[in-house]
Design a protein around this nucleic acid. Structure first.
Length: 419
DNA sequence: ACAATGGTCC
DNA sequence: ACTCGGACCATTGTA
């Protein structure tokens, strides 16, 4: 405990004197309450979208059959591979193989030159069937008499993150038009509003601090867009000359840092060749020596101590880090890099939830959901703005990092509108 | 019942 | 020969 506080002090961090064990005890009753309250669902929205997408799905299926020359199970990857690569003879060069054959994953299909019509149809089919079978159909079956959905939160992760199951409300779609439409089915109770607040780049702020990376700390202090800043560094252009495409690539680099970047992994994420990816990473480490040193420190620590730990002292043991099988050892090295970052961010959010639970007790507002760096609260319509300010304030002040901790809060009649 | 494949979220 | 971290869940196909 004292060592933790000392370590934090050295990093320019102020944390409340609470151990990870205590956090994990205190969060439990908060989670149980959230599970019981549940979140209200507008089943009509889900049902209407189901009808609409099911119709489109049938059209897509027929169009795929026509191009394939016969009917088959579009949901079967093995049958799909037979059709695409044996019958239609689409090029397999550069595509990943699975144990059973050639991968038909969307990321692989997108690599096929000039995207044949059938590929476009398959990708749309995959998107719609996913939404229908995972969200639109099952969720309405799980609501209670008040149209409320109750998840179960778990704490059995290796990093300290929470899980959500039966149903998982931490992977509700958000991308694309359908994503937002599905989120709009998550609504506030009568006379109330949803308040959604999420941390801005919490993991990158944490790593900037843990690594004491000067450039990154300066960037956060200035309030810059971190991905644009990274793009300017790795492509060596002024901030103003950063294009959307450059920013997109830089974003992948920044994510990679937190995950234990490899050139191969980055190349896969961006669909570029490994050489290019290695180049980006090299440019990145030229600027961010602090990050580079941090990564090495964590790997060395894991090898010598056998574990790494978060800011609040959650340990993760890495018994295979000295394995002779390189693949295994490297896997654990990436965990050594990622766990302190992801775990610390998770602890910060749990701390905020514990604190928020106390602060909201006096108001009529109730916490409903949490999604790793986000908290969703339900508040009386008239109080929504005020509650939004409270949530934001609690999230931002529960720890003091060496960079600003920022959260954004919004309010609306549904989850899509609140973000 | 279980492994493999694929896909959604942060 | 080849993987970027952490989860949960649906479907197919085999046992």
């Amino acid at each position: 405990m004292n060592e933790l506080l000392e370590k934090a002090e050295k990093l320019g961090i102020k944390i409340p004197p609470i151990s990870s064990e205590k956090i994990n005890e205190d969060i439990k009753p908060v989670l149980r309450k959230m599970e019981q309250v549940g979140i209200r669902i507008d089943c009509n929205v889900l049902h209407r979208l189901d009808q609409k997408l099911s119709k489109r799905l049938e059209e897509l299926k027929q169009a795929i059959f026509k191009l394939a020359g016969h009917e088959f199970n579009v949901d079967s990857p093995s049958q799909m591979a037979d059709v695409l690569f044996d019958e239609l003879k689409l090029p397999v060069e550069g595509l990943k193989k699975t144990k059973t054959g050639i991968s038909t994953a969307a990321s692989e299909l997108k690599k096929i030159e000039n995207e044949p019509e059938i590929i476009k149809l398959i990708l749309e089919h995959r998107e719609l069937s996913k939404l229908i079978s995972t969200y639109l159909r099952p969720l309405p079956l799980l609501v209670d008499e008040q149209d409320r959905l109750h998840t179960t939160y778990g704490m059995e992760t290796t990093t300290g993150r929470l899980t959500s199951s039966e149903p998982n409300l931490q992977n509700i779609p958000i991308r694309g038009i359908y994503g937002l439409e599905i989120r709009s089915a998550f609504i506030a109770s009568k006379g109330m509003k949803l308040v959604a607040a999420d941390y801005s780049q919490i993991e990158l702020r944490v790593v900037a601090c843990l690594a004491q990376d000067r450039a990154m700390i300066e960037s956060f202090k200035k309030g810059e867009d971190i991905h644009t800043r990274t793009a300017s560094e790795i492509f060596d252009v002024p901030i103003k000359k950063v294009t959307k495409e450059m920013r997109r690539k830089a974003k992948a680099v920044n994510f990679g840092i937190v995950y234990g970047q490899t050139p191969y992994g980055l190349s896969q994420a961006l669909g570029i060749d490994v050489q290019k990816a290695a180049e980006y990473i090299m440019h990145y480490f030229n600027v961010h020596k602090g990050i580079k040193d941090y990564i090495n420190e964590m790997i060395v620590k894991a090898h010598t101590d056998g574990y790494v730990e978060t800011l609040f002292g959650t340990k993760r043991y890495l018994p295979e880090i000295n394995s002779k099988i390189r693949f295994i050892a490297e896997g654990e090295e990436r965990m050594a890099i990622n766990t302190p970052v992801q775990g610390t961010a998770a602890e910060i959010l749990k701390l905020a939830m514990i604190e928020l639970d106390k602060r909201l007790a006096k108001t009529g507002a109730r916490m409903l959901l949490t999604v790793h760096d986000e908290i969703v609260v339900e508040a009386a319509e008239k109080e929504a703005e005020k509650v939004g300010r409270i949530v934001k304030e609690v999230m931002e002040s529960v720890v003091t990092l060496c960079v600003p901790v920022e959260a954004e809060a919004g309010a609306g009649k549904n989850w899509a509108e609140a973000k």
